[in-house]
Nucleic acid binder design. Structure first.
Length: 514
RNA sequence: GGCCCGUUCGUCUAGGGGUCUAGGACAUCUCCCUUUCACGGAGGAAACACGGGUUCGAUUCCCGUACGGGCUACCA
């Protein structure tokens, strides 16, 4: 039995959409589950749409996600080159196309784009919305079927522009078994004569992916649902080639839909709704426009991959957190949902939160030290592991992303400049004033300034003054941080230290008593 | 318009003839914990698109309708 070989074949027309990443992920998971190979092929047959940097972006994005190709552009392999423009130079596609012509399954067509456009317009005006170049119309067009062999040869020798079209035989039902959809069938009468080789000599997707899949021994072709309508043409090509036995199994994946409204998820949605649609940040080379990326937004790659895997697939158990290895074991196309999946940015954040919670404390502390150094300067005494570890413990459960640590802990580094008015209005009374006048001295009696000891001292003083801790606790927080809510109060106090706490109490009293 | 695919809580989904008084997760609400907030815990509200069949019995099978999506290029 030959080994499973899947491929991801994007065209370098811009940054890789997260839907594309999911397609790559499923193809990768399936290949790895079967100890097979995952191949990255670049489909750059449309010279007009080529975007510089896109190819590098694709490779970097897949690499970041841990979806590492075994073969492909940037990775080498036994089927080089893996870029279709280069494979075209080798004559691969033309060879297959000529074979199809020689066996009567394809023909040369001279009709120009402008002519076709005119015909479509005319048909449209006559109420025919579905004119296509097919078995109904091809005999009234200018092609090697309607021209004599001599005339055709003459035109070609003349350098007249022509394309090679597939000659679809009418009257059959084309059916195949899709890995996610089951049996699907089409009427060949309705399949158009697809262009396989364009006037510029480049193959179209339809021919190119088949030739490459055959040559690269692809066993499973995994792609988006948008390809389903052209699947019958692809199956016919395999049949006409006499290579139906080489045809991979197809899997058409459901599309990713907008979080709200209609249609598939697009670049615009991210900009509009404030979440990334791309794995990595992308700067459009032409417009300079920047699209945000999951990596730059602070998502863990594992969380991103986990989230993506669950958009349209689920394991059938209640487990939601999956490592790549677990995904490889659990994945199956039978469990891919058939309907499009509406993307939910909240759930994406939730996944990241879960991964954040799982992070080892030490790792978080290391990142925190870096953030502190950036904010406070390299030499700041607080930007060290012991302090950062304690601080990380304080903020960890209140954030979705690592980069939020520093912002969540502002009160550890900055004295308040304003004080929560609501709390002040309610709690800054005579008793509180007396209490906080005495508190610094009380705190000075604490020899080991831990959270527990500071709390004890605080409660003692409150008891002495016949106050419930609740009467002055929130005010204490406001004096220290300016805010009515925030990090665990005594945890924060321990980190601030006796001296800083007293200083802030003093500053706060001065400000509020003015 | 034509063709193809789809349709379970707001969202992602489980379930594929009786076990469904339809399960989980996100979001939302309530309560508990807590000085607060968050975390955590407990609980609530919330869905089988509709109409016909088939069947003793349909969320589950079939057919229609509606709705959604995709495709309809010498783009992928």
């Amino acid at each position: 039995m030959t080994s499973v070989r899947t491929r991801f074949a994007p065209s370098p027309t811009g940054p890789l959409h997260m839907g594309g990443v999911r397609t790559a992920l499923y193809a990768y998971l399936f290949a790895k589950q079967h100890n097979g190979q995952f191949i990255l092929r670049i489909e750059d047959t449309d010279q007009n749409r080529y975007v510089p940097g896109a190819e590098e972006y694709i490779i970097e994005a897949l690499t970041w996600c841990g979806i590492i190709p075994d073969e492909g552009v940037g990775f080498g392999g036994p089927h080089m080159p893996y870029r279709q423009s280069e494979r075209k130079e080798k004559g691969y596609y033309r060879q297959y196309a000529d074979h199809l012509i020689n066996t009567g399954h394809a023909y040369i067509a001279f009709d120009s784009t402008a002519e076709l456009e005119a015909i479509r317009k005319e048909a449209e005006a006559a109420g025919n919305h579905n004119w296509q170049y097919d078995n109904h119309s091809r005999l009234s067009m200018t092609n090697s079927l309607t021209l004599s062999a001599e005339e055709t040869a003459k035109r070609m020798a003349n350098g007249d522009a022509y394309v090679i079209r597939l000659k679809v035989e009418p009257g059959t039902t084309v059916s195949f078994t899709d890995m996610v959809r089951g049996d699907v069938s089409f009427d060949s009468n309705l399949v158009d004569d697809k262009v396989m080789i364009k006037a510029d000599g480049m193959p179209t997707y339809h021919l190119a992916h088949i030739v490459d899949d055959i040559m690269m021994e692809i066993t499973h072709a995994i792609r988006g649902e948008e390809w389903l309508p052209s699947a019958p043409a692809h199956i016919l090509i395999y049949q006409y080639l006499g290579l139906a036995d080489k045809m991979p199994q197809y899997a058409h994946l459901p599309l990713l839909l907008k979080p709200e409204g209609n249609g598939k998820l697009s670049k615009r949605d991210g900009d509009r709704l404030g979440f990334p649609v791309f794995p990595l940040e992308w700067k459009d080379p032409a417009s300079g426009e920047i699209s945000s990326g999951y990596r730059e937004k602070g998502y863990y790659k594992d969380a991103f991959v986990n989230m993506l895997a669950f958009l349209g697939w689920n394991p059938g158990t209640e487990q939601e957190i999956f490592s790549m290895d677990e995904l490889i074991k659990a994945f199956s196309f039978e469990r891919v949902h058939k309907a499009g999946a509406r993307f939910d940015p909240d759930k994406a954040k939730w996944f990241n939160e879960q991964y954040l919670r799982q992070q080892p404390e030490e790792l978080l502390a290391e990142k925190f030290v870096l953030q502190m150094k950036q904010k406070l300067g390299n030499d700041d005494a607080r930007a060290t592991m012991p302090f950062a570890t304690a601080a990380a413990r304080l903020v960890k459960d209140r954030i979705y992303f690592e980069h939020e640590m520093i912002g969540m802990s502002t009160c550890l580094f900055e004295s308040p400049t304003t004080y929560d008015e609501k709390v002040v209005a309610k709690r800054w009374n005579d008793k509180a004033k007396t209490f906080f006048a005495a508190l610094p001295a009380q705190l000075n009696t604490v020899s080991d300034f831990t959270a527990e000891n500071a709390k004890l001292a605080f409660e003692q003083l409150a008891a002495q003054q016949e106050l419930k801790p609740g009467d002055v606790l929130q005010m204490f927080r406001v004096l220290l941080s300016g805010q009515g809510s925030g990090l665990d109060l005594f945890g924060m106090i321990a980190l601030l230290g006796n001296e800083e706490v007293n200083k802030r109490i003093g500053a706060g009293r001065a400000a509020l008593n003015k």
